[in-house]
Each structure stands twice: as structure tokens, then as C-alpha cells.
Nucleic acid binder design. Structure first.
Lengths: 253, 253
DNA sequence: CAGTGGTCTAGACCACTGG
DNA sequence: CAGTGGTCTAGACCACTGC
């Protein structure tokens, strides 16, 4: 194939776009549309190469990038699978709070209590974070996570109303496992990437009561915007973390 | 080359080690020993392939991984260069504190004042963090970083005495640019990776005074251990960040 | 055993940089 | 222009999984 005939409609980008990037986009599209669902295998490299009329090496490079971005998981001898927040042996992938004692197990919070769950209209800042318009329907959830009976995390989250139609406090309470796993299996929304802004703050009276600390106890404020495919924001989350027995662990590369 | 004769002494690992990993180790060795210094180019892929008696593709895969770990930087048409904290257009790569106003410029702190710099003996916890023995010589530095005249970061750092022999407050004050760039050019120590533990705390009287805040102002406590090649810890740093005008920005993949 | 991903090679050609 | 990294191919073989 001397002239690599583009198997996809030519991108309007003026500059050069390598074949494997186009293949990557095509696979990404399959992930996004749900052609392959979280936990399921995608076709083998050979099959994809045949489908897209390129060599296996080119498909390989595309999948390599998807794997580096944690969108798929390669398993030698078995296949390549759509990444998932469930059944992933690294559960709670986005939760960076770990106990000070180097418990590497870190099974995630033992106890989760839904304090509140209501539909309402988006305020200006919530709308901005979720790329909605002020007044659009959003779902607000407040919950407390506890480790060994000690309330440690207080979280408020806002979800766009449309994709999460039907989500109620009952369904949240009934769910076992990471919340993002529920979003995947029940609403087809897979969280792929997130950014956090971290500050040190003092809680107000209500927050302090829910975490069983005084208003003078400094807490970590973690504001997260989580995105699905194509960088679409799908969740705003404001967390307050107690850091007297835990800490936020971060790796700098 | 049907039987890929190992160009390096066989690793004693019982399991299989691919060729490109061995090549990667060899290149890593060159980086560590200073055969190629920060900012300098390493030999071209073709040269390395000839030197190690492997194909260019294998060298490529080795360098790909080194580039993914930010140890080298590829520049098309020019070559592959040893990564450096100086002259890297992303300066202050390990500093994640950014102004709340989305100033993407984020030129780093405008003002840096060395408060203290003294040689002393390592306490138990400092020794543990730096893989030294209690009582070994260490260098302690305290400094304050300010943005637009507002003191924002108070940092205490501990460095192992031996590699940093000759480091004084004067040399620190005279240096323009990131501290890690000074470590590279003056002491041959390149920081490659770091891990941070983040908490919310209240400052003591001395800390509050240096940051010009009250003792009731919650601050971000950032404890960092930075490593050189081969995961050797080379710096312990305890930072206190004001987060009333700035926040710690983190990406979750 | 067949099927999967993983490694390695050799060669052709492209895109970018600098003299 | 020569030299660099970047892309793409085709084919051989290896390591791992599960039937």
C-alpha cells in the first residue's frame, strides 16, 4: 500500500494525520457508541486489521495508545478488553485517599451512606462545569464514606439529569461496588478521565457534623470534574477529606 | 538473528526478559553514569542499533518507554535528548500549585527567598525517607516562594550531605531558575520521579508568620520524596501551600 | 491445539530539521 | 541536501491462555 488510502473520511485538519491515529479514532468510536461494552473483548488485532484494511502493526500502535490511556486493557493470550471500573482489580481507581499506615490493600471505604439525593436545577457554576445551561435538570447526591466506622469523606456530586434519568437514592444504596461501576452498567456512562483542584479548607457546621469533627479541623477540599469519551464532562464532585488518619497520595512522573 | 544472543549479561530473573527491555536498561545506564548529560542528545537510533547489534525497531521500542517516563525527549528531525529541568519549556514540572484564575502561563513563583540553609545530622524520619542512617550528614533548606509579592509556599527540604557537598545558601540565592535545574548542572543529580502525600493542616506560629497568615488558616501540607535514576531517594521536601488564591491541580487518567 | 497478544526483524517511505 | 525521528508493511517466531 504505497499510497495509504484513508479508510475513513479525510479529517479536515490541514496537517498530516498518521494512519494509526485514524484507526484509533475508529476504535474509540466503537467504544463510545457501545459496540463493545465495558468488560467485553474488542475484536482481535488481526480482525481489526482486516476490517480497516491496514497491517496488524498499525492496529497495534492504535491499541497501544488506547491502552496507555486506560481505555482498554490488553491480556496476553486472551484478547483486548474494554476497561471498566467494575471487576477491575484496581477498584476505586480515581480515589487517591489512602490510610497513613501503608495498607497497600486499600480496599476502599468500608461504609457508604447516601445522605441525600434530589433532582434540581443547575446553578451557574454547576452548569458551567457540566457544560449545561443554568437551570437545566441535574441530580445532586450527598454521601458519607467511612473507614472502619470513622466517617472520613463527605462528597457532594452533581450529575446531568438526562443521561442519569432514573437514578434514585434507593438504587444508589442498593449498589455494591464503586459508583462509577454503577454508572457504566446502569447508564452506559463510563468515566475516563478527571481533573481535580485541591485546597485546604475549614468545614461549615453541617459539614463538620457529618464528618464528626470540629469546625476548626482543616480538611482537604477536592473538586473533581470527571469526563466520558470525547472529554464530555459528566460529573462534578466536591469532596471533603479528613486527613488526620489518611492522606492524598500522588505520583509525579 | 534467530536466537537473539543477549548483548548484556543475562539477568538472573527466572522469567523471560524481552530484548528491548535489556536495551532500555543499557541506555538507562548511560543516562545514570552521565555518558549523556541532561540536555544533550543521545546517539541516533541507527547508531544505537548498530552498537547493541539489534534492529532499529527494537531500539525504538526501548526509547519509546524512556520517553513515556520523561527520561528522554524525542524531537523529530533533530534527535533524542536527555530530559532536563532546565531549558525545558515546561519548567517547574513537579510544582502543581496554580493560580485560581486559569493563568495557563503559570510562570512559577516570581520571588524566592532562602530563609535558612544548614548542615546537620539526619533525624530518624529524615534518614528513613532518604535511605540514610540516623545521624548521617544532611543539608536542610528552608525557603519561601511568593507570587506577586504574596508569600504562598513555605518549603523545608532535606538533601543527603554527600552528593550535595558544597551547596550553600549563597549558591542557592545566586541561582536563577528551578532548583532541580541547579541540582542537575552543579551536582549531577537529576530528579526523575517523586511521590507526594497531601494533607490539610494548621500552621504553627513560625510557619504562619513566614506565610503572613493566621494560625487558623488551613494550609495544604505536601510531603514529597523525589528520586533519581534507579528510584534512589535524593530529596525530602515538606511544603506548606496557601490555597486561598491558588490550588493544587491534578489529573487522573 | 488454535487463537491471542508480544517480540523482533528488514526494508521502504514520509515528515521534519538544519546546514 | 543528508540525517534524524515517525509511519507502515509483511513475515517469522515466542509466550500465554483455554479448550
Amino acid at each position: 500500500m504505497t499510497t495509504p488510502a484513508s479508510p475513513v473520511a479525510e479529517l479536515s485538519t490541514p496537517s498530516f494525520s498518521p494512519l494509526y491515529q485514524q484507526i484509533k479514532s475508529l476504535i474509540l468510536q466503537g467504544l463510545h457508541t457501545g459496540e463493545w461494552k465495558p468488560g467485553e473483548p474488542i475484536p482481535s488485532e488481526i480482525d481489526l486489521a482486516a476490517r480497516f484494511r491496514v497491517s496488524q502493526g498499525t492496529v497495534r500502535k492504535a491499541i497501544d495508545e488506547l491502552a496507555a490511556e486506560n481505555l482498554v486493557v490488553r491480556r496476553q493470550g486472551k484478547g483486548t478488553f474494554v476497561a471498566t471500573h467494575a471487576e477491575q482489580h484496581v477498584q476505586y481507581r480515581f480515589l487517591k485517599l489512602v490510610p497513613d499506615s501503608g495498607d497497600v490493600d486499600s480496599e476502599g471505604p468500608a461504609d457508604r451512606e447516601i445522605v441525600d439525593c434530589r433532582r434540581q436545577r443547575a446553578s451557574a457554576d454547576v452548569a458551567r462545569a457540566l457544560a449545561l445551561r443554568t437551570g437545566d435538570a441535574v441530580l445532586q447526591v450527598r454521601r458519607v464514606l467511612a473507614y472502619r466506622g470513622t466517617p472520613t469523606i463527605l462528597e457532594d456530586l452533581w450529575l446531568p439529569g438526562l443521561p442519569f434519568k432514573g437514578l434514585t437514592a434507593e438504587r444508589l444504596r442498593a449498589w455494591r461496588g464503586p459508583m462509577y461501576a454503577l454508572f457504566e452498567t446502569e447508564f452506559g456512562v463510563r468515566m475516563v478521565r478527571a481533573e481535580e483542584k485541591i485546597r485546604a479548607v475549614l468545614p461549615d457546621a453541617a459539614q463538620a457534623a457529618l464528618l464528626a469533627v470540629s469546625c476548626a479541623t482543616p480538611l482537604l477540599s477536592v473538586e473533581r470534574v470527571a469526563h466520558t469519551y470525547h472529554d464530555t464532562p459528566m460529573e462534578l464532585r466536591r469532596g471533603l477529606y479528613r486527613t488526620d488518619t489518611h492522606h492524598y497520595r500522588n505520583e509525579l512522573g
